[in-house]
Design a binder for these strands. Structure first.
Length: 846
RNA sequence: GGGGGUGUGGCGGAACGGUAGACGCACCGGACUUAAAAUCCGGAGUUGUGAAAACGACGUGUGGGUUCGAUUCCCACCACCCCCACCA
């Protein structure tokens, strides 16, 4: 082997070699446990960034580690390739989205290979390829069959200048189009929805079956699903036979209702409004309608409303209460109407005080009711037959009474809404249905799938999606009756594409079916999923939903797609920011010792912020690979911070990892040069074995943990390296074993270097990545002597070397014989002695 | 307003309820070198007494509690970060 470490030469060499020998091809051996390691697949934006490097390296370490442990490992990669950026790029550069996307995929795939990531490329998927979206469309048809896909009207963003529908991301915070700058309008279109709400309860409660998911991701999902338990109650409109329905979580306060509020959009507004209030109501509705989403929902928005002139009957106490409309009631949630109980709800309290509505206390407790709402529980008052009943109990009783009388019922309400999946975009998966004037919505027969997306198109960003203008594509005959019909020209939300890709990898080349259930049920669920926290809600929720749907369709035998989830932290770069303008300055224009704005001379704020182009704080993986090699880049991102935490890019720390790899290289090189010895003193031999087996134990436990503690795992490699460097036994078989162990355990982290060193250490043994993972010998950790820590009243006062075989009496005597201990004990009585065997002894004195 | 999380040296971070600060970065000293880089060896939480060896005190956001012993467990509070948010 060479005396010097040359990352460039060995990395290229082994990448070629691995490809030729098919090292990373997935094995499925009878009777072997499996491990499915998966990183969230990337959007092919053009180049790899550091966040990708971090994400994929973590999974790669685990995949290699598990394989050495004897698992059959599935570790695939693919591309979440449909989406808006390809359309934007096409508009900017005049390149078809397909071409742009495929170029990017080629570029990024090459970069992934340069990092030495061990993927089985024979299973690569790209969501924009017909062999993949064929099955996305097939799933859509299953959803229609299962009654889980339906159409209804929904609002879209309409750019009146460019005459086109905009995605939410194309509308800025002021409600203007990204391209034309025009004020975006809302238009109603009939669109496809998926009934995820049918699965709300299961999506919520089966979170409890995911002990290896981060608590905060589960909390975010619970929050998003937003279950509320309460009552549905009806109030009869005075002078009409119509009823206003409300949802409330506090049926126990129903005797305190002093008004009812409808959302301004509520259809009953027209019914309830009296002639004299007509103008005021209409004006208020117009005011609310003109507000943007942001204005409407911002917290500092004052609660405003107007009376409709109408009133309803509270069936519990026979009172007539007025009906208002107000901006704080959301049409989309619950029934779009609420009962106002100012005494026991903070919002209602503010509203009632503002408009002088009565405040009637019905739950005992709290202070002066006119100054603040009392939202805690307590015994009921002013509540007829329910007086004195504690509120928690009263909820059930009042619901039961209402149900008996036909006024209401128990109700569970979710915030989760059905999933709007239609997109009026070109670069997405076509929705496989045909609109027939006679038959209505007709599914494209499965034999005709996939409905191919025409790829040779020009995009302008103006006017309708190109799909609607491709007459040959649009005009087809109805598969059922044969008359002239039109294809659906909307495409699917790209979240659909990514909601099932992990189910395709186990059988990625299947052209007869979405997958062979036997294959997918063997490999899935994913054992370890790694990705960014930004997908904590939507992607993970939708994937869980699809998994449950396909289970109910009889294709899957498990309930949850991802057993363990790790959300890795962001990669941050040093950022120079002007404190006044908030503009970022490239580091090349700044003196790091005295950071000043080159234009204004102002002192700059220096901080670590998430890497992004606009902040000039990014580091391209390619430049690091070129300078130090992929192994150093991998070691750095793994060592610098625990995987869940944010990672600050630091050139000194990168250099530190490069130094460490060089130290290993020299150590192995020198071990190779050392003349063999067979004799060794017992002490150093024991020390060396202990160091080696401690490293095996600790490192293995680090990688086995839920947090995949690569940072502490690498520090174990460092400790072992230090121990070997300090050992006088170079040339001894045990030393050689230590070197080999070090190289094997280095393999998941720095695969190229480990492979190269291994080829020198054991030329006949085959790839280091196929060696069995070392197993520690508990005997090697056992010592005859230990450092006994001596505490007096819990404070460390002394220590001594003691034999492990020593009895408590011996140890007490030895400890008390020490001068420092004597001083502390002098004139006091020993009340108690606590001995922790092999560790410490504590004298309680007074 | 609701929910989740985090507070440990100059920095990143370690610590089955048992010697707090492993491992690394930066730093300081030394060796090698004409010199520098690289490499190697050594040092260091803060603070007091001391020439030094050493010996004390204080130290894991704050205040309590449990315990022989708490970074770790419990309670309250403070600060920061993230998510959701007029959700009835």
């Amino acid at each position: 082997m060479d005396a010097k470490y040359n990352s460039r030469a060995i990395e290229a060499k082994w990448q070629d070699q691995w490809q030729q020998t098919g090292l990373h091809r997935t094995l499925a051996r009878r009777g072997t446990p499996k491990f499915y390691a998966l990183s969230m697949f990337p959007y092919p934006s053009g180049n790899l960034h550091m966040g990708h490097v971090r994400n994929y390296t973590i999974t790669d370490v685990l995949a290699r580690f598990r394989r050495m442990q004897g698992y059959d490992v599935l570790h695939p990669m693919g591309w979440d390739a449909f989406g808006l950026p390809a359309e934007n790029a096409a508009i900017d550069r005049g390149v078809p989205p397909a071409q742009w996307t495929h170029q990017n995929i080629a570029q990024m795939r090459a970069e992934l290979q340069q990092l030495g990531l061990g993927y089985d490329w024979e299973r690569e998927v790209a969501t924009c390829r017909p062999d993949y979206y064929h099955w996305t469309q097939w799933i859509f048809l299953q959803l229609i069959d299962m009654g889980l896909a339906y159409r209804k009207a929904a609002k879209v963003n309409w750019d009146p200048v460019d005459q086109t529908v905009l995605a939410n991301e194309q509308v800025d915070s002021e409600g203007r189009s990204w391209r034309s700058g025009a004020k975006v309008e809302k238009r109603l279109l009939t669109q496809w929805f998926l009934k995820i709400t049918d699965y709300a309860e299961e999506l919520l409660h089966s979170l409890d079956q995911l002990p290896h998911w981060p608590e905060r991701v589960k909390a975010m999902q619970r929050n998003w699903i937003g279950k509320s338990v309460g009552a549905y109650l009806e109030f009869l409109l005075v002078g009409s036979d119509q009823k206003i329905a409300v949802f409330t979580t506090r049926p126990d306060t129903v005797y305190g209702v002093s008004y009812v509020v409808l959302a301004p959009e509520h259809p009953l507004v027209a019914v309830v409004t009296t002639a004299e209030h007509q103008d005021q109501v209409v004006a208020f509705q117009a005011l609310v309608a003109a507000q943007t989403e942001e204005e409407r929902t911002s917290e500092d928005q004052p609660k405003r409303g107007v009376p409709t002139g109408g009133s309803v009957l509270n069936p519990f106490n026979g009172q007539h209460v007025p009906v208002w409309i107000a901006n704080y009631v959301l049409f989309e949630y619950g029934t779009g109407a609420v009962m106002g109980v100012p005494a026991h709800d903070a919002r209602d309290h503010v509203f009632a005080r503002q408009y002088g509505l009565p405040i009637q206390q019905v739950i005992a407790g709290g202070g002066e009711i006119t100054s603040a709402a009392w939202t805690e529980s307590g015994p009921l008052i002013n509540s007829g037959p329910f007086d004195g009943v504690p509120s928690d109990e009263a909820k059930g009783k009042i619901i039961a009474f209402a149900a008996e009388q036909g006024w209401g019922k128990a109700q569970i309400q979710y915030k989760l809404r059905d999933w709007l999946v239609s997109r009026q975009r070109y670069w997405g998966c076509p929705i496989p249905v045909i609109h027939c004037p006679d038959c209505g919505i007709v599914q494209v027969p499965t034999a005709d799938l996939p409905v191919r997306l025409p790829e040779a198109v020009t995009l302008t960003g103006r006017g309708a999606s190109p799909l609607t203008t491709l007459s040959e594509w649009v005009h087809v005959s109805c598969p059922q009756c044969g008359v002239a019909a039109r294809r659906e020209t909307d495409t699917m939300d790209t979240f659909i594409d990514s909601s099932w890709y992990f189910l395709r990898y186990p059988d990625a080349r299947n052209d007869q079916a979405i997958f062979d259930p036997e294959q997918t049920n063997h490999w899935a669920p994913v054992d370890q999923y790694v990705g960014g926290i930004e997908h904590a809600i939507l992607h993970l929720l939708y994937s869980r939903f699809f998994t449950k749907v396909l289970r109910d369709r009889g294709l899957l035998t498990f309930d949850e797609p991802f057993q363990r989830l790790l959300t890795q932290g962001m990669v941050q770069g040093l950022t120079y920011r002007n404190p006044t303008t908030q503009k970022c300055i490239p580091s090349t224009l700044v003196d790091p010792d005295d950071p000043k704005d080159p234009e204004t001379g102002e002192a700059l704020k220096v901080a670590y912020e998430t890497m992004s182009k606009s902040k000039y704080n990014g580091v391209a993986p390619a430049t690091v690979i070129e300078h130090y090699g992929a192994d150093t880049a991998r070691m750095f991102v793994l060592f610098k911070a625990p995987p869940e935490k944010d990672l600050e890019w630091d050139v000194d720390d990168v250099a530190g990892q490069f130094r460490f790899l060089n130290r290993i290289w020299r150590l192995v090189y020198e071990a190779q040069q050392a003349p063999p010895i067979t004799e060794a003193a017992a002490g150093p031999l024991k020390d060396l074995r202990r160091a080696m087996h401690t490293a095996i134990k600790e490192l293995t436990e680090d990688l086995d943990s839920d947090q995949i503690q690569c940072n502490t795992a690498i520090s174990e490699l460092m400790k072992l390296t230090n121990a070997l460097g300090d050992s006088p036994l170079a040339g001894h078989p045990v030393y050689q074993e230590g070197i080999e162990t070090l190289v094997k355990m280095l393999a998941p982290f720095a695969p190229h270097m480990a492979e190269d060193l291994w080829s020198a250490l054991a030329p006949e043994a085959g790839s280091v990545h196929l060696q069995p993972w070392p197993v520690y010998d508990p005997q090697a950790l056992v010592t005859e002597h230990f450092t006994l820590v001596i505490q007096i009243n819990g404070k460390v006062r002394a220590q001594l070397e003691a034999a492990l075989s020593a009895t408590q009496t011996d140890l007490e005597a030895q400890a008390l014989a020490l001068e420092t201990v004597q001083k502390q004990v002098l004139g006091k009585t020993i009340r108690k002695v606590i001995l922790v065997p092999g560790r410490l002894i504590n004298f309680v004195v007074s």
